[in-house]
Structures are given as structure tokens and as C-alpha cells.
Design a protein around this nucleic acid. Structure first.
Lengths: 180, 180
DNA sequence: CAAGTGTGTGAGTGCACACTTACAAACAAG
DNA sequence: CTTGTTTGTAAGTGTGCACTCACACACTTG
């Protein structure tokens, strides 16, 4: 017995987030996740109920990490005004997604929301994050909306590689966005 | 000779936008596009250089339609202040994406930007739209950025089905967003 | 009408991949 | 040491799909 199944599940899930992030659900074979996690494909199918079950569980892990980072970021806020707390949360998020895997996984998950289980996982993830942001920062609806709107803009900037584009329109879209 | 190849290409492209919008590039077989367009799979492969060529051409058609709609919307603006023109453009966009195909196709395209040809097509699309918005509305960088940030928020609202969610966090994210 | 050109398809081919099954080794308990 | 349980895998199986090719029909031109 090299490892417990529960510990394997955790490592496989974190691996799955990174691997699915690159090419998405349909273009990523389960063998790719298995190889990256260092186990056989067959064992992945024993640990999770099919490829979809693996992806949905990975989505849960992804949003867990995001929620944790934002919660931790809020603790480090300079003051307790909504603006300061939102700013601290935004900074923590920017720092977290520097490696791009969590951001790209969200994009991939949004792209397969025609699968009901995935749609529900995405809603659950944003439910957790948005309710926390709203209650913790004591921010108005408009502030919360703005927070997520600019978060989504980050997705476009990263997927389209706009940081690498020197043209004025691209500079306008990326201006002031924290570090991606 | 039932039709010219050029006319076929146009109808196939519009069909492709709708069909790819639902399940994305990798989950959509070329047969599905062919069937929806009423021609054989083999002929699709003669009209376009492979599935990727079809998808990239469809992306071009998608952004063309968006750019045209925004241009037409700008003409109907109430005044010529940046705010009024941006508002008219936003309204035209909201109207255009009421059927969801153009919006969902954009999400699907962003999800496969790991394919360089797709990434370039997405950049080209946003280049056209963003430069037009900036120059036509004479808007500041910050206004242009805000315009696209809330546009991206629309993508999240639609893919996650947030209009159907009655909870406060979802109401905050969807507040004031035009009609999706 | 013969030859050429453009439009269109049916019937494959080969491969990638989701998922299964049969089997083996590590460890635990009596 | 035997029996049982959990961790792990190698080797399939079946299917779906990208792409091809040989062929047929429509229409034009001389």
C-alpha cells in the first residue's frame, strides 16, 4: 500500500486542474492526467466516476483554492472600507492566478457548461466566492459586480495573450490590471 | 451546379458559428456542422482546410457580425458624447447576442486559444471591435476597458445561467445588464 | 455531342480515447 | 501462514471521428 486512496485523490485533483487548464475537457485524455499524476489511467477511473466526475471534482478544487486565497487576502487588507478590502482581495486573486492554471481552468469550465453537472459546479464556485466577497467586504451590489467584471476581463487578457500586444487598443484593455 | 462554392462557404460559416457555439471545437464533429448546413461532411472538407480552418473562418464571421452590429448601433446613438455612444453600442451588442450563439461562440473560441491560429483569430476580432469602439466613441482607455469588462461579465452570466438564479449574489452580478 | 470544369457524395480508413476486466502485489488481522 | 482488503496496473474492447478517395451529376464551351 503505497498511499491512501484519499491522498491520491487530492494529488490527482490538483494535477487535473493544471492539465485540463491547457486544452480543456474534451481535448484532454484521461491518460494525460494519469501520466502527470504518475499513476495509471485505470486507477484514475477507479478513484473517480468517469472523466466527467474527475472534471467536476477538479472544478471544486479549483474554486476552493480561489476562495481560500481571497479569504486570506481579505485578512491582509489595509483598512476595513469596502474599497480597501476589495482591493486586497483583487490583489490576492491576481497573485494566485499568476501561474495561469486556475484562470485557464475557469475558462475551460465555462466552455463546457452545456454539461449540466459542470454548469452546477461553476455556479457553486461563484456562489461561494461571490457571497464571501459581498459579505466580507460589505460592498454594494455595484461594487461586487465591478469586481467580477474586471475579473472576467482578466480571462480575456490572458487567453488572448493581450499583455504581449503593444497596440493601443490592447494597452487600453490591460491598463492597470494586476500582474497577469 | 446547385450553388456556387462561395455562397456555400457563407452559409456553412453561419451554420458553423451556431453549431460550434453549443459544445465547442473539440466536442463538435464536422458531421454536425455538415448536417446542420444540409450538405455532406466530405464537401465541408473540400470547402475548408480541415476542421481547424473551418473554426477559424467561423470566428472571423462571428466577429464580423459583432463589429457590424456595434457600428450600426453607434449610428443610432442619441448624442455624440462618449457615454451616449458607448451606451448605444452596448445596447446593440445586447440585442445581437440575444440568441446566444455569437456569445457562446466567443467563449468557445477563448477556450481553444492554446491553438495559435485560434488565438490569432480572437485577437484579430477584438482588435477590430476595440479599435472601432475607441475611435468611434472617442472614449478614454478606462471607458473602453469598462465596456469590455462588462461585456465579459455577460459571458459568465450566460454560461453559468445566472439569470435563472434568484439568490442575492447572482442578482448583484446580473443587475442592470441588458437583456440576456 | 464531346470534353472540360465545378459541385457534390458514399463508402471507406486509421487512429485516438473512454471505459472495463482480469490480475498482481502490498499490507493487515487472526 | 492464510485469508481478506486495498492499492495498483497491463492489456484489451468498442466506438466516434477527422480526413480521403473514387466516383457521379450539373452545367458550360466549342
Amino acid at each position: 500500500m503505497r498511499s491512501t486512496a484519499e491522498a491520491r485523490r487530492v494529488t490527482v485533483l490538483n494535477t487535473a486542474v493544471s492539465v485540463f487548464a491547457r486544452a480543456g475537457f474534451h481535448a484532454t485524455p484521461v491518460t494525460a492526467v494519469a501520466a502527470a499524476a504518475g499513476i495509471s489511467e485505470a486507477y484514475v477511473f477507479r478513484l473517480f466516476s468517469g472523466k466527467l466526475g474527475l472534471f467536476v471534482a477538479a472544478a471544486g478544487a479549483c474554486f476552493d483554492r480561489i476562495a481560500d486565497a481571497i479569504e486570506a487576502g481579505a485578512e491582509r487588507a489595509g483598512g476595513d472600507s469596502p474599497e480597501e478590502i476589495l482591493d486586497a482581495m483583487g490583489g490576492a486573486y491576481a497573485e494566485l492566478i499568476a501561474d495561469r492554471d486556475l484562470l485557464l481552468f475557469q475558462v475551460q469550465a465555462q466552455a463546457v457548461t452545456d454539461i449540466p453537472e459542470v454548469a452546477e459546479a461553476v455556479r457553486a464556485g461563484y456562489r461561494r466566492v461571490a457571497t464571501f466577497v459581498q459579505s466580507r467586504a460589505r460592498a454594494s451590489d455595484a461594487q461586487v459586480q465591478q469586481f467580477f467584471a474586471y475579473g472576467q476581463l482578466c480571462h480575456l487578457i490572458v487567453t488572448a495573450g493581450l499583455e504581449q500586444v503593444a497596440e493601443p487598443w490592447a494597452r487600453a484593455l490591460t491598463a492597470g490590471i494586476r500582474h497577469p
